[in-house]
Design a protein around this nucleic acid. Structure first.
Lengths: 249, 249
DNA sequence: CGTGCTGTTGAGGACGATCAATGACGGTGG
DNA sequence: CCACCGTCATTGATCGTCCTCAACAGCACG
């Protein structure tokens, strides 16, 4: 466990904790002590089903996952993508009402750690900074959902561009490679794969995407113009100092 | 002020407070003492602009309003409708990040009361039940946003049907009259007015809507079938006993 | 009795879905 | 090393939903 704590401080989860305001060694350690089960999940498998969502949540140590629901016809609707360091099922953890709606699915082979609701509750009481961090992360999620409502009725090109911008902003990667398939993008944008492909070709014509098979953004500025993207909503930053998540009883 | 308090207990706001768990006389009174400015707003006017949203919020005493944003082309996107007794700008009050996105607009002549952020903060510290009530109301709002994400990619008929169901559930009215125009529905559903009109005619053919000019649902069961509607997500009910909204200094 | 807003109707067109087939690539096992 | 397979990407053709533009009718208001 000790080497995990060390890895946590430098790894993606550690970076995430830092971004959320958890910097003190004691707080980071407290967090890592909560992580109980570690596991590997195969691509395509469900990481957290709707019934588990309220009882525990999960940290994505490595891999790519998505928060999704199924439409009555079986089509997959992706609400959000998750990358290393993300909390999975956080939304339902904080907002129990929406639990039944969603599940978290692995898009690549994933490595995860799980955290019990009860243990988390107790830890929050002892380390308030943890509660604040969760709260911030949850707010950011809500923020992206609302953004998506707006984006959802723009034409396909802009909608896709916006999605790509968001992924780049979240990945904070130097190269513009986005580790998703066109199928994933289609399910997130709510467009058919065929049409996504045509949009991609258009984006390549515009010099925004590379001509590789993988999804690689070569002109991020141009992309943001197309999308009308402003990353402000993704930053938990200053947004919140007064309100706080606490346990009542 | 005293007669307002009395009116509040029996009026729509009082009912709302009760539903949110504020039943004790002292708590209700504490709430009414916070309501400072009372005002009348003409139809079409902005009740709470994006800049005000963080500093105060508002109680809708009488009338119909909507939470909306403008698209870059000027089109109005309605995120939610508000009826007597609703808190306006609550979402931005609790989630400051999304403030710039929205404004609240009067759809009919409205009568409102406003509440200061600072005063509310102080009151929550003294009357925790107030914080819990706000929190529940905010959760319900988040819940409806996520639902709308799902609904947003269903065909027009079902989308409209769903919207109508939601309004009926919120209005809790005996007759099925919904006090909105086709234009409002169009902006909320993200469809053109023309198409909304055709959907309405279809709904009338199906015996769901009356043939009146106003929007009147005559067969609610049928409507819910069409929409695949389940009102569960609107009920703050049991959903939350452990998490709580507090002021952290 | 206009003026303005809402509702209604028709015609044409655009965007994106669906169906179907093919290509490109990576992995696996012979 | 090659054959085979599954997944993902690509392309063409057709079709449906919904948009846009435009005109008009009904109703409420002053």
């Amino acid at each position: 466990m000790q080497q995990h704590a060390a890895a946590g401080i430098v790894g993606p989860v550690g970076q995430r904790l830092n971004a959320l305001g958890i910097t003190a060694r004691a707080d980071v350690d407290a967090f890592w002590k909560l992580v109980k089960v570690r596991d590997e999940i195969d691509r395509g498998q469900t990481i957290v089903g709707s019934t588990d969502l309220v009882k525990r949540f999960t940290v994505l140590l490595e891999g790519v996952a998505c928060l999704s629901t199924r439409h009555e016809d079986g089509a997959r609707q992706i609400h959000a993508f998750h990358y290393s360091g993300d909390f999975l099922g956080l939304h339902s953890f904080v907002f129990p009402q929406s639990a039944e709606l969603s599940e978290v699915e692995a898009l690549t082979r994933c490595s995860i750690g799980t955290i019990d609701r009860d243990a988390m509750d107790r830890a929050i009481q002892r380390y308030p900074v943890l509660g604040r961090a969760l709260w911030r992360a949850a707010l950011t999620e809500v923020s992206t959902f609302r953004q998506r409502l707006l984006v959802s009725r723009r034409p396909a090109l802009q909608r896709v561009a916006y999605l790509l911008c968001e992924q780049l902003a979240r990945l904070k990667t130097d190269e513009g490679v986005i580790p998703l398939t066109q199928i994933d993008i289609a399910d997130a944008a709510g467009l058919s794969v065929v049409h996504i492909n045509r949009v991609f070709q258009e984006l390549r014509q515009l010099g925004v995407l590379s001509k590789q098979r993988l999804i690689e953004v070569v002109n991020q500025e141009r992309l943001q113009e197309l999308a009308g993207f402003d990353a402000g909503y993704l930053d938990p930053g200053e947004s919140l100092s007064r309100w706080d998540l606490r346990i009542d009883h």
